[in-house]
Structures are given as C-alpha cells and as structure tokens.
C-alpha cells in the first residue's frame, strides 16, 4: 500500500527528498519549483513513512497527506442547470482535489425528478471508468429513499451519495452524507467544511476497500510506474494541452491523447519485461475519445502465459514431436 504526500519547502535541498523517494521505491508525480519554493507531489510505501518524516523535519519543510492520491472520482449531478450547480458540485470537486484526487464533474441528461429520473447506458459506462462516484442529490428524504436510487443501482463502482436530510443510509449506496443537498450558497463555515471532510473520508474509505481488493490479487505493475513509462516512451504527452495528460487510477491510467492515432503506439510500449497490450486492456474512453488503460492482475497474466505455452506445445505436436 502506498501513501501520498505533498512536500512544501525550500528548493535548495529538495533533491534529497527526490532521491529518498526513489530509494524507497516510491514515485514522483509532480515537481514544481517556483523561486525558492518547491512543491513536490509523490507517493511512498506505507511502512517507510517514518524515514520520510525524519528527512522532512531535517529540511524544516511542510508535509501534507493526500489520502485520495492516484484516484479519479466522478462528481455526478442530476443535470447541469443552476438548480444543481455550481455551489455544491464545485465545492465538493475542489475539496476532493485538495485531498489528492482527480475529479470530473458529470451532469446527467435526465437525472431529475422521481418517475422521470433515468440514466443512459453511455452515462453509466462513463461513470464506471472512474474509481468512485459521488452523487449529489436533493433535499427530500422521500425522493432519496424511494426514487433516486435507480440512478446508481447498477453501477459497479462504489457510490457515495450526498443529500440534504438526516438519514442513516440510502438504498444501494456505499455511504450517505447528509447536509449537502441542493443548497444556494457556497460552503464557507466550519460546520459546512466539516461536512466536506466527512465526505472526503467516506470516499477514502471506499477507495481503501477497493485498494484492498486489488492487493489480494495485485496488478502486474503499479499505475504510477505505467504512467512514468508512458511519459518516458511517448514524446507527444509532453506537448499535450491537458493540465494532467496522464491521470493515474486505482487499476490503470487515462491517457489524454486521441485513441485513433495513439492507441496502436501505446499498445506496443514496454513495461518491465512485458509489452503493454499483453498485460493491460487498452480501450477507447467514453470521455472525449481518450485512451483508457486497465491493467490486468498478475494471476490473469500468468494464466495467459500458460495458455500461450500450452498452445505452442500443442502446435509442435507435444512430446511425440
């Protein structure tokens, strides 16, 4: 398991931190040096945190934990009209971003109402490309308990529902956070920010559950390693206009390059001892024709290798040949 941090300190000895992260087997996600200030986003193995703390104390720098690092989260609102946007959706998306996640706000086409609320297959596929989804719903408990669950019932990722009324839980959701429904103001007071904190914790808990599931049958390589390999081997990533050209997810990465042009190149890159297309599914993303890469678990890759060996053996005619 990895822990994500943001380092904020003097630039003159920041190389020591970079070296330590590399030595510990971590990964550096972002380095920004502005004047004498260095801001470095990185991940390191969980058990090496004390070593890191010692160095940070020595450098007299600040360390900020980002528990949602390496995840992509969908913030879903019933529509994109001013009834539901901007206040709650943007506040939640920004808060999760500060916690290290990459968030995308998605407005459904027909998510409003009781009987008429619906979600299309395309929207479902788009939301399922993320690691978790936060649904921002309304203020009436009758709607939340009786009708709105049909929007997220069939989703295969953890769903956190934010709504107005005080309820223990809503059907089919992994978690429910009350007090953030349809509100006409920005969240500024402490009590409101605590609600956002609660929401971020719920998201973190859901992601931890998924991380544990993945750890039971680990991926063939870490998404962070895959990210740095793509950056090294594909030049066009550097000239991409998106602020985050490669977004790490829990079980893969999203590459913001055109699928038709770059998919065949990305499939052939080397990751460790493998070619990427042998160890991952490279498919077209529902978001803007981007490339979505989902890594296979180790056991599946091993199984595929065995099948390959068997077929070659059979092709040669087995022992008799």
């Amino acid at each position: 398991m990895y822990n994500g941090f943001i380092f904020e300190g003097e630039a003159y000895r920041h190389r020591e931190l970079l070296e330590l992260v590399e030595d510990l087997g971590g990964s550096i996600l972002n380095v920004r040096i502005i004047a004498q200030e260095a801001t470095i986003t990185f991940i390191i193995p969980e058990e090496d945190t004390p070593t890191l703390r010692k160095l940070v104390l020595e450098l007299r720098a600040r360390l900020r934990e980002i528990p949602l690092v390496g995840s992509e989260i969908a913030v879903v609102s019933p529509t994109i009209t001013r009834h539901h946007l901007p206040h709650p959706a943007c506040d939640i998306a920004e808060y999760l971003r500060r916690m290290g996640a990459k968030t995308n706000i998605i407005g459904l086409a027909r998510g409003v109402g009781q009987r008429v609320a619906q979600i299309t297959r395309r929207e479902k596929t788009l939301i399922e490309e993320h690691d978790a989804a936060v649904f921002l719903l309304g203020n009436f408990d009758y709607c939340l308990l009786e009708h709105k669950w049909k929007l997220y019932k069939d989703l295969r990722i953890p769903v956190i529902v934010a709504g107005g009324p005080k309820l223990d839980h809503v059907p089919y959701a992994s978690a429910y956070i009350s007090g953030i429904g349809r509100i006409p103001y920005r969240t500024r007071f402490l009590s409101e920010i605590r609600k956002l904190d609660e929401l971020a914790k719920a998201v973190g808990k859901c992601l931890d559950g998924r991380r544990e599931m993945i750890a039971a049958d680990p991926l063939i390589t870490s998404p962070f390693i895959l990210k740095s390999e793509i950056e090294k081997q594909i030049e066009e990533v550097k000239t991409c206009y998106s602020p985050a050209p490669i977004v790490p997810q829990l079980d893969g990465v999203r590459v913001k390059l055109r699928y038709d042009k770059f998919a065949s190149i990305i499939k052939k890159i080397r990751v460790g001892n493998y070619i990427l297309e042998d160890v991952a599914e490279v498919r077209r993303s529902m978001m803007k024709n981007y490339i979505l890469i989902k890594l296979y678990p180790k056991s599946y890759v091993r199984l595929k290798e065995l099948e390959l060996i068997n077929s070659q053996w059979n092709h040669k005619g087995g022992i008799s040949a």
């Binding site: 900020r64 007071f189 402490l190």
Partner: peptide, 20 residues
C-alpha cells in the same frame, strides 16, 4: 448558517501533518 465560536484552529487538510 451562522458562524459558531470555536476554540480550535481548524485546518482540515493540514490536520494530518500536525499529528504526523
């Protein structure tokens, strides 16, 4: 919506560092 008096200085995303 009223600001409530509180003793603690609350920095939600910085809290883990102090513990750290």
């Amino acid at each position: 919506r009223e600001p409530k008096k509180t003793e603690e200085i609350y920095k939600p995303w910085k809290k883990p560092i102090n513990d750290l």
